[in-house]
Design a protein around this nucleic acid. Structure first.
Lengths: 335, 335
DNA sequence: TTGAAAGCGTTACCAC
DNA sequence: GTGGTAACGCTTTCAA
């Protein structure tokens, strides 16, 4: 790698000061009243020498790195991968670059990733907080960092966030099933104290109560730490042990897919013996023997809003913005 | 955000020079013969002041950013997302951070993303090169950048690369079909001059030739620019127009999934009327009415090798390493 | 309209 | 053992 060409080189070449070069190359030639000829010369030499500004030096000087730290649960999960893609594109449009990390729902990994982001002096954080990471977020807030929480949030933490209106989403799903004549509906969720799961449960429970099906409420909490096989077994056992169950709601994407394996293996007729509602969409839903009815999140909107909000904060906005976006409900054969 | 605490602050506090602080805090106190008491004091104050070194300043000074630029075709594609996850984890282990970009198979986007990476002064590049990006890679090489090509490569460019042994993978798939009694086998590939597709085609063609099935060779090139629906239609038409076709190989993941939609709609019996071999694995393969036989890439190995190789180059290795890793062939109901 | 120089936080060389 | 200081590449203030 041959030596970088710096502003100094351009300045030397033209026998001018680096200040002038800086003015022109950052497009403030008018503001700074640089002569047109000079500006032209500088631009020409910069081009000839193939000058590239050093973001590094600029950041060191100015404090802004034009970098966003994006902490996801797992980039290998299609839901987060799609979100990451949207966020990256949106950030790029605005001149930002994105550092990505996957916490794997572990508070320790989350802490270490956030530390890395801090070390790199990111200008702001978009975070899918994991259970037990509340203190980490608080500590970031204390230091006045720009933060947007994604997909989840802590109700007693006053941060901006962007997520789905989980209550509405599941309430509509539940209502739909009941209208279709099902009433022994079971819901599978991850064991989690986090808002999204809680809200999804609430959407189900309150809808059931509202329609006098209180006695039929059944929420099965699947431990996130279970292996795929253990999760599948738990779902199978639940469905086998209570043959009155006539419908099931899976509260997120991976549970839906695992649930489909379970139902497939039990050989249940869908929707005659059991109706199904899934979450988040997947090509798998199309290929299941009864294409799935499911709740879809507005990924693009979520992604864009989170970047917009974050950059707003970075640029000085102080207002807390909390978005709970609307889902789309796709009704198909399985319900 | 309150002011950063720098080495200068620590130095001032203790009335010593920043040099000393630097020696201690970078663990070179012995090498530089700093007194034990001094070292202790410095460490204590650093801790008390909650000192965090500035990667930025360090990079500006030393030249290394400890950052890798990862250019993928599309992070929203599960194949690349999984790879990204592995690469990130492996890079993190070695103290590197990863900047990710998606080229969407467009040479322009690729160029602009690589420019961003250059601006950010990444220490090295892991690139899934798109068609038409050869000059971009060459230009990086000329400037002596550390580069590892991923999944694909340019045979006349002398770069390190990590990819699948595509020839072997498809040769085994083809042989398998023939052994199962199929001989009118058609292969669907993306229209692409890139090595992976070419090699997959070669694996098919040469195997057919070797078994005297030259006259049955049929490769259908699907334009990448087609919409999902257009691709699906092309596959359907091909299968309808030649009812002698008794087996099909899809040369990559997305074609496989689209192909499954097509075959499903044609209502073909699998494998009786048509045998199928897919690529790269997917939960969809499990849910198709005949669970798919498929070729699996060694993702973890690919990811780790690419990081290892790149960091080797960054650290001074000059040897070109080219890996063509072995696939795993999963035989199931569809063939 | 242009220039000189300070400063961002490190590191590394050389001197003491 | 320890200190002074230049340098990395840029932006910005103050002067001219």
């Amino acid at each position: 790698m041959r030596k970088r060409v710096s502003m100094k080189d351009i300045a030397k070449e033209l026998q001018v000061s680096t200040a002038l070069v800086s003015y022109v190359l950052t497009g403030r030639e008018n503001e700074k009243r640089v002569s047109i000829e000079m500006a032209e010369k500088i631009r020409k030499v910069a081009k000839d020498l193939n000058y590239k500004p050093s973001q590094l030096a600029r950041s060191l000087r100015g404090g802004a790195t034009m970098t966003i730290g994006l902490l996801l649960a797992d980039i290998a999960n299609p839901f987060f991968a799609s979100l990451a893609r949207i966020i990256e594109d949106e950030a790029a449009k605005r001149g930002y670059v994105v550092l990505i990390g996957s916490s794997d729902e572990s508070a320790e990994k989350s802490a270490s990733l956030l530390d890395t982001f801090i070390d790199r002096q990111v200008d702001g954080f978009i975070i899918v907080p994991t259970e037990g990471s509340k203190e980490q977020i608080e500590s970031l807030m204390e230091k006045n960092n720009a933060i947007v929480l994604l997909d989840r949030y802590f109700p007693d933490l006053n941060t901006s966030h962007v997520c789905l209106n989980n209550y509405n989403a599941i309430a509509e799903a539940t209502t739909h099933l009941i209208q279709k004549g099902h009433n022994k509906i079971v819901m599978f969720v991850y064991q989690s104290s986090q808002i999204p799961m809680q809200e999804r449960v609430r959407g189900y429970v309150e809808t059931m109560k509202g329609l006098n099906l209180e006695r039929n409420i059944k929420v099965v909490e699947v431990p996130y730490s279970f292996t795929k096989l253990e999760k599948e077994r738990l779902i199978k056992m639940t469905l086998q042990n209570d043959i009155n169950i006539d419908a099931v709601i899976f509260a997120n994407n991976s549970l839906t897919i695992i649930g489909l394996y379970a139902i497939y293996q039990l050989g249940l007729k869908v929707p005659e013996e059991i109706a199904i509602i899934g979450f988040d969409g997947s090509e798998v839903f199309d290929f299941f023997y009864a294409p799935l009815t499911y709740v879809e999140q507005p990924l693009v909107e979520i992604g864009i809003k989170s970047v917009e909000t974050l950059i707003g904060i970075i640029e000085g906005a102080t207002e807390i913005k909390q978005f709970e976006l609307a889902h789309t409900f796709h009704i198909r054969n399985s319900s």
